[in-house]
């Protein structure tokens, strides 16, 4: 399932990433389930547009967050793989 940094993550059909005004939180709504990302997860998902590669997402986050790129890369790729396995993303 792992797509590596060349993968082009995109939300599966029927999956919506949006800000829920009632919960005051970003949510990922998929058929019959709801994903609630924390702040870091939200920052990753905001960059998923089907055009940006996983590597480009990592570069963007590495430029903004105070952590080594390889640490961010490990977490981002694991998160994308996990969401793909759970049916929210395609890689």
């Amino acid at each position: 399932m792992s797509g590596g940094e060349d993968a082009l993550p995109r939300f599966r059909r029927g999956v919506r990433f949006r800000f829920d005004e009632i919960r005051q939180q970003w949510t990922l709504l998929a058929p019959e389930k709801l994903f609630l990302p924390d702040e870091t997860g939200t920052e990753i998902l905001k960059l998923v547009d089907g055009e940006r590669s996983a590597g480009a997402i990592i570069d963007d986050l590495a430029a903004r967050f105070d952590a080594p790129r390889d640490v961010i890369a490990t977490d981002v790729l694991a998160t994308l793989d996990d969401l793909a396995a759970r049916g929210a993303l395609t890689l």
Partner: peptide
């Protein structure tokens, strides 16, 4: 802006 390992909770509707 410190990096924290992402956590995504899944809830069955």
């Amino acid at each position: 802006m410190s990096w924290k390992t992402p956590k995504i909770v899944e809830i069955a509707l």
